[in-house]
């Protein structure tokens, strides 16, 4: 409860800066309009108008909030295609798109994390993989995802793979890397003494993995998963841009085609909330797991 004051102050500052910036950025359009009508216009008139433009350079917070409300609750409850009237989520609202993006994100995250863990085990247990895999993994992350995503989507479409999977694969492409790095580090966390201890028991490598290396790497794994799930969401959104159909990426692109800045911002907020929710979820999973494992102190 002691933190609520500072949090509110920071939030207030952000909102104040946002409103200020919106007024400054949108003012020029109002002056141009006034000039076109052969009149001059003072700040007293400019300020309220900058907060009510249809296509502002920077929409103000309450515009974004209203748009968010309209595209979620409003669309589903009152809209012709909404949940209440049609029984399914509206393709004009954001919930459907958020769900499509989120499911691809989760699938991609699962694929990416699984692949990352397998790769990390390979790197730790196999000298050849240790020397050869990491440079490629790093190289894979230096390629801009925006450049490679359309190609992967097109190639997969050509071989008959479409729908969720192409997007999920691009999400996996981004999310496997932090998991590899974290899990390699985590599995190498046990010191020489702990490894010697297992040798005195004549433990098999598999026992070493399950009883020592995996448990020891759990704190590292969760840190990586948090980064990975956010990267996964970014990958999905980027992959959706050239695709069409449903998804937050598609909506963002459509918004920028038609200059719907308020809609873009509303969509961005949904994406950000999805990322935040995922990270919080993993954080909760982390606390629960580590506490049960006795790391909690």
């Amino acid at each position: 409860m002691k933190t609520i004051g500072p949090v509110l102050v920071v939030l207030g500052c952000i909102l104040a800066i946002w409103y200020g910036a919106a007024v400054l950025l949108n003012a020029q359009w109002e002056r141009d309009q006034a000039a076109r009508a052969d009149s001059t216009i003072g700040w007293a008139e400019i300020v309220p108008r900058t907060m009510a433009q249809e296509r502002p350079v920077l929409p103000v917070p309450h515009q974004v909030a209203a748009e968010l409300w309209k595209l979620t609750w409003g669309e589903e409850v009152h809209g012709r295609k909404g949940l209440v009237r049609s029984g399914s989520l509206s393709n004009r609202g954001l919930l459907l798109h958020a769900w499509v993006t989120f499911s691809a994100t989760l699938l991609g995250f699962a694929i990416g994390s699984g692949f990352g863990i397998l790769l990390a085990v390979g790197i730790v247990y196999n000298k050849a993989m240790d020397a050869s895999v990491m440079p490629w993994a790093i190289a894979s992350q230096t390629i801009p995802i925006v450049a490679i995503a359309p190609m992967i989507v097109v190639v997969l479409n050509a071989v008959g793979v479409s729908g969720l999977l192409p997007k999920a694969l691009i999400a996996a492409y981004l999310s496997f890397f932090p998991v590899v790095v974290g899990m390699v580090k985590g599995q190498r966390a046990p010191d020489a003494m702990q490894l010697d201890l297992l040798r005195t028991y004549n433990a098999t490598p598999a026992q070493g993995l399950w009883k020592l290396r995996f448990p020891a790497s759990m704190p590292y794994l969760f840190a990586s998963l948090k980064v990975g799930v956010a990267a996964s969401l970014v990958g999905t959104i980027v992959a959706e841009m050239p695709l069409g159909g449903a998804g937050l990426g598609t909506r963002l692109l459509a918004g920028s085609y038609y200059g719907q800045t308020i809609q873009i911002w509303a969509t961005l907020f949904v994406a950000a909330s999805l990322a935040a929710a995922s990270v919080i979820l993993i954080g909760a999973l982390q606390r629960g797991t580590l506490k049960r494992m006795g790391f909690g102190r």
Binding site: M193, D196, T200, N202, L212, M293, G294
Partner: peptide, 20 residues
Amino acid sequence: RRARAYGYVFQAAGLYPWRT
């Protein structure tokens, strides 16, 4: 060693923190 002929006690206890 492979016949597990001995128990070894190290300088540090080296207990796994995630096990009781």
